[in-house]
Design a protein around this nucleic acid. Structure first.
Lengths: 230, 230
DNA sequence: TGAATAGTGTCTGTTAGACACTATACT
DNA sequence: AGTATAGTGTCTAACAGACACTATTCA
C-alpha cells in the first residue's frame, strides 16, 4: 500500500432555527491564538473528526451539535463534502457539511459563545472564516430546495403547532408567502401532520393543534412543488 | 491547535453507462497482495486523495474517472461522504462518493481491468469490497430520483440522438416504461433538447435528431415528476 | 357587534397519462 | 400494399393557485 499524506478531515454543521420570525443560523467565534486560522471570526460550528470518539460522520456531526445546543433529536442531513488544497491555511482539508433544523425552543448555552445570525438572501451579514460563506450558501440552497417539495419545516416548529404556525415556517424559509388554502390542502392530504384534537385558545378563533405524523417517521414528500407557475 | 490523528481520505466514483440496453456500472478489481484489503474483489474505481496532484475533490474524482475511461467531459456529481471507523480495515476512513454518467461510446481501455456490470434492482450481482455495496445503492438511489425530475439521461446517450433513444435511456434507468406522448411533450416543452434539423434514416420512418440544448449548459428540471398517480 | 384569525368551497389553468390516431419511410 | 416506427390530437383526472366566502372566539 502506497502511503499518501492525509488531508485534514473535519465536520461542519449549519444549524438553522426560526427565531423572532426570521430564519437564523447558529455561528461561533473562532478561537483566538497566534497559531489559529481566522482568529475571532464567525464560523460554522464544527471541527476535526475525533477518530477515538466518533463512530461515524453523522455521530461526529451530532457531537458538534450537542456541544452547542441541547434538545430533542433534531433533523440532521448531510449536504456534501468540500475539499481542496486552499480552504484551510493548515493544508489540504476536507470537510463534511451537515445541516440541522432545531425548533425555536432549543436552548443555546450561554457559555458556548454561539449566536443566532439572521439569514438574508443567500447568507448572513457577518464575514465568515474559511470557505464558510460558500458552505452556508450550499446549506441554504439545499434547505430551500427541499422545502419546496418536502415537509422539512415541521422540524422548525415546536409541537404541538397550528397550521398557521407551520405555514409561517414555510414562508420564513422560502422568503415568500404561500396560499393558505393550497397550503392546508397540500399539508393535510400529504398526511404530513396529524391532529392532536386539542385547540390553542387566543384572542380570536382557536386553532386546531397538530403534530408531525408518526409512523413513517421520515420526511414526507409532496407530489408537486409550491413553485408559482412561470 | 490540538492535533488529531487524521482519517484516511479517499474518493470513489460510480460510473454508469447504458450498454446492450441495460444500465451498467464500471467496476475494477482490488489489487492482490497480502497487505491489501479485499484483494481481488470487485470495487468502485477510486482511491486516496493525492494532496500533491489533486486541487480539489472534484479534480480527484475526474482523475479516477480519466484513469478508467476516455471521452468527452462526462456528467459528474457528488453523492456524499461516507465515513466511519470500520469501513476500511486500515482504520477510520472517509470517502467522497461521486457518480458519473458516460455515453455508450465511451471507451474503457482493456489494460485497466475494468468491467461493466449490469445493475439489477439496487445493486450489482458481484460481491463488492469495503462498503461499496452501500455506496452503489446510494448512487443508484440518487440517480433514479434525479431522473424523475431532471434531464440527466441526455448524458447517457450519444449525440445526436432521437427522442426514441432518449426515451429508452429514461426507461432503462427508471426500469419502467414511460408514456411516449407525455415524454415527448415534457422533454420538448422543458427546452431540454434542440433539433439538429437532421434525420436518422432507417427501415421505417426517419426520426428527427436532437442534441442537448446549449446555453443553460446545466441539467434541466421538469416542472413535475414522472411518477404515476397513486 | 366588530375585529381578527381559522378554516372552506369553488373556479380556473396547467400538466401527466392514456389511447387512438395520422405520417412516413423501406420492402 | 404492408409493416414498423415516428410523431400528434384529444380526453380525463389531479392538483396549485386565486379568491371570496363562512366560522368562531374575545373584547
Amino acid at each position: 500500500m502506497k502511503s499518501f499524506p492525509r488531508p485534514l478531515a473535519t465536520v461542519d454543521v449549519a444549524i438553522f432555527s426560526i427565531r423572532e420570525d426570521a430564519l437564523r443560523l447558529l455561528l461561533v467565534r473562532r478561537p483566538d491564538g497566534a497559531d489559529e486560522p481566522f482568529p475571532g471570526q464567525w464560523a460554522l460550528p464544527g471541527g476535526f473528526i475525533d477518530t477515538a470518539r466518533d463512530v461515524d460522520l453523522e455521530g461526529c456531526a451530532m457531537r458538534k451539535l450537542a456541544d452547542k445546543t441541547g434538545f430533542r433529536i433534531p433533523y440532521l442531513e448531510q449536504v456534501g463534502g468540500f475539499g481542496n488544497a486552499k480552504r484551510d491555511p493548515r493544508g489540504w482539508s476536507v470537510t463534511q457539511l451537515y445541516f440541522a433544523l432545531v425548533p425555536p425552543d432549543a436552548a443555546v448555552p450561554d457559555e458556548s459563545g454561539a449566536q443566532w445570525h439572521a439569514v438574508h438572501g443567500d447568507g448572513v451579514g457577518a464575514r465568515l472564516a474559511f470557505d464558510h460563506k460558500q458552505l452556508v450558501r450550499a446549506a441554504l440552497t439545499r434547505l430551500r430546495n427541499k422545502v419546496e417539495y418536502t415537509s422539512l419545516p415541521v422540524y422548525l416548529v415546536t409541537e404541538p403547532f397550528t397550521l398557521g404556525e407551520l405555514q409561517r415556517a414555510f414562508e420564513v424559509v422560502l422568503d415568500r408567502s404561500v396560499n393558505k388554502a393550497a397550503f392546508r390542502t397540500r399539508v393535510l392530504s400529504a398526511g404530513l401532520v396529524e391532529s392532536t384534537g386539542e385547540f390553542r385558545p387566543g384572542p380570536t378563533r382557536p386553532a386546531e393543534l397538530y403534530r408531525a405524523a408518526r409512523g413513517a417517521g421520515d420526511v414526507k414528500f409532496f407530489p408537486r412543488t409550491f413553485s408559482p407557475r412561470s
